[in-house]
Design a protein around this nucleic acid. Structure first.
Lengths: 130, 130
DNA sequence: CTGGATGCAAACGCTTTGCAAATAG
DNA sequence: CTATTTGCAAAGCGTTTGCATCCAG
């Protein structure tokens, strides 16, 4: 099998940089718009491709919200979950649940644990204000 | 404001019944196919509308898996989560995580908790066999 | 009768893909 | 030079919507 050598392109850099700039999860479309606003003329398809590549490579985290896929650069390598504000979309990283609890429950049903997702939705402090 | 009076139709009944028949989560398209197979000629749009209505009314639970929305009739009113087999798709209901833990974490960030989803992916006993 | 419900097909929004042109190594 | 990457536009997918028709109340 032939190895696929990753090529370094300005588009990839721009996308990665723009993603790194984001503190929160961002959709491919929003990232594309952000790049356009910054002057980078990058095709939407390229943004999707690069984002998926990053996610596949484990360099980016993704969550699904409301039918869209949101991406964020993976800072740490560990598992983490999110508290998502239903109103403004702000997300806060939360600590992993007790992994042992998970494993215990899964194995109680004879399942192995490969991955899991946990998302908590609510209102952030700002959006709770009247 | 005028009240919307729910009308009783055979389509609604059929959809609700078919959904009740399902033990696992099912997509709108699959449910539509199932209904067709049973001889009910119901429009796909109606299935979507009814399913969304059930979900809005809180009578059905929905999860998003792989870009699709899956529905299931809410048997119990409590919260529950799933262990999903990556290979065969089998799902097992699991007990809720310590709700208090969730709330504690969320409130630690000033968030309220409105809802949450937890999905655990792995291999079921069958699919672990070589 | 009357207004909610249905069915159809067209519209939608997000994402992916085919393909020719551009370009990194 | 050659294979990867890009950009564009078209296709794909699940879902929603407009509208004429249907039918429960």
């Amino acid at each position: 099998m032939v190895e696929h050598i990753e090529r370094q392109t300005k588009q990839k850099d721009a996308i990665r940089a723009a993603l790194a700039d984001c503190e929160e999860f961002i959709s491919a479309q929003d990232l594309h718009r952000k790049l356009e606003d910054e002057g980078s003329k990058i095709g939407l398809a390229t943004v999707y491709r690069q984002l998926n590549a990053l996610a596949d490579a484990g360099a980016a985290d993704t969550i699904r919200l409301d039918g869209q896929q949101l991406f964020r650069l993976c800072g740490d390598d560990g598992h983490h979950h999110h508290l998502v504000c239903k109103k403004c979309g702000r997300t806060v990283e939360i600590d992993p649940p007790s992994e042992s609890w998970l494993r215990k429950v899964a194995e109680g049903h004879g399942f192995t644990v490969e991955s899991h997702t946990l998302e908590v939705f609510g209102l952030c402090p700002e959006c709770q204000k009247p």
